[in-house]
Structures are given as structure tokens and as C-alpha cells.
Amino acid sequence: MSLLLRYREGILALIIALMVTGISLYAPPFGTLSNGVGVLNDTAFLFMMALAQMIVILTRGIDLSVAANLALTGMLTGMFNMVFPDLPALIYVALALAIGGGLGLINGSLIAFLRIPPIVVTLGTLAIFRGTIVVVDGGSQVNTSDMSSTFAGFPKLELFGLSSVFWIAAIVAVLAWFFLGQTRSGRGLYAVGGNPVAARYCGISLPYQQMLAYGISGAVAGMSGYLWVARYGVAYVEIASGYELTVIAACVIGGVSIGGGVGTVAGTLLGALFIGVIVNALPVMQVSPFWQMAISGAVILAAVIINARAEGRALKLILPEARRAAAQAKR
């Protein structure tokens, strides 16, 4: 399986490389280093949000509330900044992580302890989080002029031309890789998603793993909320509206199985990069940005159908000649 996955991730990487080459030939500015940096910077939010979503999907769950969480936490940190300007930026990051994580734990507890299906819970909290923005700010906006320089400046810091948002996404990716591959809790996510009954017999607690997954998902969404608001200089009720579906799309393209228990960090990052490349290529190719949605829809369907062929029900190998043929094919 891991071999096949690597194989599939390889294919995805190859497709992205071909796409980049093709687009660069057609529109040379796309192939430049600075544009590449731009793509990575623009896709940074999608990288981390998709990784967090993958962690939830691994447990057979789904978190539809991430974009609403992003908007609400972004708004709350923005308002906090109006009251306490000029604190170090990391305080805002920590605050956003805490608020977002708290919102995620609300999802987690409804799912883990009341056993309400994740899609129902996060559909409800999606509406609640978004609406709460209006309740807390009375329908107004937080604009750049309201933001202190430490608050607004942080996401625009650069290292090697890459923004701090990208570097944070990189850190998230490394942490996710380490967490999912090298820790018991991380492997536990694969276990509860792969076979919940077996996980229970192994002493792995489903409620713990679910709280963990939705907490992480919320925390990453919250942190993205602060970075988003500061970077784009505005917080209002509609920001990142519908973004949850882009995030899920990145996971699906990256080979994360909605059925749980299957997904890799590399695949998910490639899935996000795929969408990022398309989004950035359209203006360069002077194609209307309205194409973005249609293309990502077509790509999701293509990715899904290719995966489905790979996972289709195989006949059992009972006849001796069939077994021999399969053994030979393997060699």
C-alpha cells in the first residue's frame, strides 16, 4: 500500500510538474522563480488548512466549520488588537491558536461525547461561528487602519523571499509529518479511522483521538484566521466564505480517503499545491479567474475516478492458475 501511495503521490507530483512546464511555455512569466515564490506564498493557507482537515478526515470525520472558525477567530483577534495594540505578534498567534482550538474542541466534544455525526455538528457550528461574527462586532469591519503595525506586519515578514505565512505552513507540515508518523497519538488517528472496533481493542480511545483531531483542526484554522486578517488587512463576516470546500478538495486530490484511515502529509501538500498552481496560473494565462472553480471541480472528479479504479473490488484469487498469474505479475 505505501508503495502504491508513493507511486500515486509521484504521479500527482509529475502532473503538477507537467502543468507548471506547460503553463510556463505558454506564459513564460509563470516559470520564473519569483512567480514560484508567489505561488507558494499564496498557497500557504491552503497547505496548513488541508493538513488539519486531513487529520480530521483520517478519523472518518469532516470539519465543515474551518472557514467559519477562521473568520470568527480572525475577527476576534482583530478586535483584541484594537484594544491591546502593539503586543508582540506571537501573542496574537497564540491567542488565535487558543480561540480556534477552543472552537474546535466544541466540535470535538459534541462529536466525541454526544456521538453526533461530524457532518451535522460542523454544519451547525459553521452557521453559528459565522453568525457570531456579526453578533460580536455588530456588523462592522476591522480594517487595516484599525490594526497595529506588529499585528498587520507579521504575516508580511519575509525570509528568502517567502512570507512568514509560508514558513508557518512549513512548520505545520513538519509537525504534522512528525505527529502522524512518529507519535502514538498520530498513529492512533489512522487506527480509529481504519477500524474503530480494532482500535478500541487496542486500548486506543476514540473520544480522545476525536478531541485531538478537531482541536488541531480548530487551532490551525484559528491561527490561519489571524494571519489571513492581518495579511489581507480586513476582517468581516464573509472572509474565506466557502473555503472549507476548497480545503476538502485539496485533501481529496491528495489521496486522503473520506472513508478514514488513509492519507499522507506529502499527498495532501501536493493536492493543495495543485489547486494553488491552477489558481495562480489563470491570471498569468490571461484566463478569467472565474475558471478556477470549474477547473478544480473537474480535477477533483478526475482524481476521484482515477483513485476509484485503483480501489475497485478485486476478485479473490482462488483458482491456482489465477494465483500463479498474479504472483508472476507481481514479479
Binding site: 470546500l245 476538502i248 478538495a249 481529496v252 472565474f290 475558471w291 478556477q292 472553480m293 470549474a294 477547473i295 478544480s296 471541480g297 473537474a298 477533483i300 472528479l301 476521484v304
Partner: peptide, 10 residues
């Protein structure tokens, strides 16, 4: 989710 993006995208 895929066809949603596709249809609205069109």
C-alpha cells in the same frame, strides 16, 4: 463536492 465546483464554476 466535485460536481458542485464544476457546475457553479461553469
Amino acid at each position: 463536492i466535485g460536481t458542485m465546483s464544476l457546475y457553479r464554476g461553469i
